[in-house]
Design a protein around this nucleic acid. Sequence first.
DNA 1: TAACGTTAATTGAGTGACCAATCAAGAACA
DNA 2: TGTTCTTGATTGGTCACTCAATTAACGTTA
Lengths: 188, 188
Amino acid sequence: MPKLGAEPIRKAALINAAIFEVGRAGSLDVTVAQIARRAGMSPALAHHYFGSKEQIFLAAMRYILRTYGQSVRDALPGRGPRGRLDAIVRASFAPQNFQRETVSAWLNFYALSFVSSDAARLLRIYHCRLRSNLIVALRGLSDHPEQTADTLGALIDGVYLRTVLTPGPTDADAALTTVLSYLEEALS
Amino acid sequence: MPKLGAEPIRKAALINAAIFEVGRAGSLDVTVAQIARRAGMSPALAHHYFGSKEQIFLAAMRYILRTYGQSVRDALPGRGPRGRLDAIVRASFAPQNFQRETVSAWLNFYALSFVSSDAARLLRIYHCRLRSNLIVALRGLSDHPEQTADTLGALIDGVYLRTVLTPGPTDADAALTTVLSYLEEALS
DNA sequence: TAACGTTAATTGAGTGACCAATCAAGAACA
DNA sequence: TGTTCTTGATTGGTCACTCAATTAACGTTA
């Protein structure tokens, strides 16, 4: 049933499936066959479009990064410095970015950066951008914007980690409260 | 060269090798052959003593947990509440517990808890114990000991994560400073 | 518009590599 | 002699990746 223009649709389906499967398994140890099956196609087709499993993972990582970056950018404009700060933090816990599978996949892609230099590059870019966004937003609010930014970044990662590890439904509100309370203390 | 009493020595060597290899690879995706080779023996012997790869991982996880718990206990006695708090935090960044490979292995064993219920059990016990240790130590120092304990726990995990991801030598001092500065702010 | 060649989409059936786990057997000690 | 230690060889299974073949859409041209 070959309809033309299947490529972007198939690729998107594979990326979603990869995020879901990695998130579900809690590790990168998922087979191309699993991903392809969830995306509703044969493993051969997945290889046809992406060439290798690593390329699927990298595309998924880029997708998550892009989605996150977009939701930060959407939330930024037209507020004071404190508003910008809030926006960044809130974006980290917004529903699109805080599904259990997404967060779990995200953490597992961290691990990919040990093996793949492409993944390491993506991650470094993301980290630097988040850090400089935070530092800019913190200027004038904190006495040591850089230290506060580093603490805040680490805290967000840690909360992600614990969210994934805690069984049951993810509680975005609790996570957000933890981080915002820290900010409240740090900026007063 | 069969000398008697090799079992504990061989097991210890395998546990060390497993931590090192998992830490180095940044994932649980290491073969029994790799672990055995680093420990200076054949893969068959590793299976002989541990039965399965999962058992090797679990033993390594227990070892890390025991070492950490011991260094906390060593540092606890004979101080005020604030001293106890410091002791717990400092133990987390003490040299035995803060080698890059150890921290990396530790984070990867987190992931094991998705797959292995034994690993999940170990992890839950550790988390509860750390949390209650922190809450007790925070009583009288913080207005909301539980919230502070959760934030502190997440922050430590996050700092671990970032330490592993940052290339170059691990900087225990910087990590410690980040966490202690947070405490300073939170308790004032 | 009908016939035809080109290209995209799709998969079943491999292939080769790797790996966890087993086993039988040898070697050294008590 | 029996027990512990040790390993080479083997097995069964899994998986990433390839290939050849099929099907259907599209463009072209007579």
